[in-house]
Amino acid sequence: DGALGYVREFTRHSSDVLGNLNELRLRGILTDVTLLVGGQPLRAHKAVLIACSGFFYSIFRGRAGVGVDVLSLPGGPEAGGFAPLLDFMYTSRLRLSPATAPSVLAAATYLQMEHVVQACHRFIQASYEP
């Protein structure tokens, strides 16, 4: 009599999972790497980092990546951009302002997050337009 089966698609599942991962990050549960940015520690999950960034993919994909539990990222112009990028990875929301966009752009370039780089370029370009 027609339909043989049903697939129930939970449309908000991906955002529910990401929200829980963000809560785990904020509470330090199962975080397995510390990113040092200008001496400031940022705790995170390697699995989320490797899923979002070509740079972290290169670092963590091999067997050697298992033993990496502290990773220093560059200070200087990029430093202020790393925390917003980490928030983006865990929330899908990228906070940009004219003041922060250049450092987020620099950090996203370093972390090989091409789509964020493009979004930063579009934001900066739009902010120049009247």
């Binding site: 027609g2 043989l4 089966g5 129930r8 698609e9 908000r12 529910d16 809560e23």
Partner: peptide, 22 residues
């Protein structure tokens, strides 16, 4: 007749919510 599968959308929450840190 393996192709007859209906997809039903579930708009509600899919998993438990980890309590927010106080």
């Amino acid at each position: 007749h393996e192709g007859l599968v209906a997809t039903v959308k579930e708009a509600g929450r899919s998993i438990h919510e980890i309590p927010r840190e106080e």
